[in-house]
Design a protein around this nucleic acid. Structure first.
Lengths: 142, 142
DNA sequence: ATAGGGTCCGTACCATGGTACGGAGTCAAG
DNA sequence: CTTGACTCCGTACCATGGTACGGACCCTAT
């Protein structure tokens, strides 16, 4: 096997993470510890792929626990479960994107109103939360 | 004063947070502690507004420290600084949205490829990270 | 006036995702 | 064969944003 010649530092660099992070993932069971060899572990392309997968999945909003489940499922070939997780995450991603988009719009409004008027105190609090319930507040928390 | 009749529990409920969270924000200096009265504090509409602002700003991705700065700035009327923070956050929000959108697309591809083929092991790792470097992997870390 | 629920307060704990440290062992080049 | 870089390992620590707990006190209705 030609591809199994990396030390942990090279593996980490190949995936753009720190050595400590690799070790952390091993502790969490997300990355196999190559039991082969005696003293210093050697890693291969498969490890790089798995490490990159972990980072991608993280970027998609999966927690490390969920990623662990995904990896276990990948071994098990349990498609329905993978699909279910993916679908859930997709929905979560959609609502998160919507939320951020909304927040972005609100923030942009704030910025332009702040940049526009020259005199006032640029009331960011009101900009974010218009005085909907002036005196009889405490309407509906959710 | 009609609007200053809330206890901490009412205030928290009005903003949709827990009592402990309110106290936590007070400790962080994000929410004023009404020094008035002797024993039990009373809160008003302004507190509700500020609390809601904190949550909105949080939703926009500001950290509590940044929110603290925003609040201080709101008092100071330091527009340029507010604008600078808002602009930074806007950019961060944009890149976060882009990242999530990309992740969403990748995840959707995974889901459909997993749902499509009926036989294989639904290789999620490869789905997220296409085999760019099949055999001679681990070439150049940077 | 007394019971009960709410408040105040400090301190401790939680989850998440790492990062840092120190000592011992290992490995490869000079 | 020595030196210096790297690895391994456990344990401790960090930041963020809360949540929980327990005792003391207060406040209000009955």
């Amino acid at each position: 096997m030609i591809s199994g010649a990396m030390t942990i530092a090279r593996l980490a660099a190949a995936a753009g993470v720190g050595v400590e992070t690799v070790r952390y993932y091993q502790r969490r069971g997300l990355l196999a510890v190559p039991a082969s060899g005696g003293a210093v572990r050697r890693y291969g392309a498969a490890d790089v792929r798995q490490l990159r997968f972990i980072r991608s999945a993280q970027a998609a909003g999966f927690t490390l626990d969920e990623i662990g489940e995904l990896l276990a499922l990948d071994a098990t070939h349990d498609r329905p479960r993978v699909l279910a997780l993916a679908t859930l995450r997709l929905a979560a991603l959609d609502s998160k994107i919507a939320e951020l988009t909304e927040a972005r719009a609100a923030l942009a409004r704030l910025a332009s109103s702040c940049a526009g008027g020259a005199a006032g105190p640029c009331p960011i609090i009101e900009a974010f939360d218009p005085p909907a319930t002036p005196s009889r507040a405490a309407g509906t928390p959710e």
